[in-house]
Design a protein around this nucleic acid. Structure first.
Lengths: 145, 145
DNA sequence: TAAAATTAAATTGCATACAATTTAATTTTA
DNA sequence: TAAAATTAAATTGTATGCAATTTAATTTTA
């Protein structure tokens, strides 16, 4: 009696794991021009929507903790993309905001989503479907935590 | 005119990125008993199917290069899960095989796929759907490379 | 067949991830 | 209100990932 469940090809999570890395590689090419990594690009996406935000809030949006964010934000500060300053009301908090350079990168980034989708060459119906299923999964996992 | 494409919530790839990490966290709990990480578990899955394999073949199955595999396999060797030996026919190649301990872990691993699916609590129809979409995406990306 | 090209792993360097701990500030509570 | 508990970031330590380079072995080619 074979155990098919332990076969690699039947591992749905392996597909997610592989797809994540392959897609990140596609992004790497597109983001080269902006000189940011994919996680850094996500930080920029958040800050382009909301001018400033604490490290904690950023972490809640991106599902990342300070162990990941602190050094990454330090690198982004070093590259002059963001500024970090302690909150005056509560000195425990660090407020992250965009520099002029970080703000201006948004223009260059406009084309990235469409280019990425073009690279993926997936049709809109499937895309919406995928989006919906992943949202469901994420919500279910998050709910458990 | 708002640019919705640059909004985080519309980033399908962010969902894949997040889902990958959340699922890996679920695995982390399940794999604790086996004392392996998720990528190490993937190596074991492959070796449980085929007794032995070169580093290159392993990399082709898992989409990982020697920069990732070499140190990981060294750690697994250190934990007595696998053995590494140079091929006699071609000394460039390193052949990876399971130790008794690595082979025996398969029994303990039997329950993991079902437990994981239970944690995900996604219905079979959605699962098959997700599987199909991700396979399509992976195939399209792979084809480009 | 000897030099050039190719190939398989390993190594180097950098950037995530994340658990666990530490530090400093704030809030709660006895 | 002073000690205890909580909270936000940073730090520490470990394990991926991956591009680029190096090393050693094999194959190709001039």
């Amino acid at each position: 009696m074979e155990n098919n469940q332990l076969k690699l090809e039947n591992q749905i999570c392996f597909k997610i794991y592989s797809a994540e890395r392959e897609i990140t590689k596609l992004y790497r090419n597109l983001l080269e021009e902006l000189d940011v990594t994919y996680p850094q690009y996500l930080v920029l996406l958040v800050l382009w929507e909301e001018k400033s935000m604490t490290v904690k809030e950023l972490g809640q949006k991106l599902f990342l903790d300070s162990g990941t964010l602190s050094p990454m934000l330090k690198r982004m500060e070093g590259n002059n993309l963001i500024e970090r300053r302690r909150s005056l009301e509560d000195e425990r908090m660090v407020i992250i905001s965009l520099t002029k350079k970080g703000e201006d990168l948004k223009v260059k980034a406009q084309c990235i989503p469409s280019k990425l989708l073009e690279n993926l060459s997936i049709d809109m119906k499937e895309l919406k479907n995928l989006n919906q299923i992943l949202s469901t999964i994420l919500a279910k996992i998050q709910q458990k935590i």
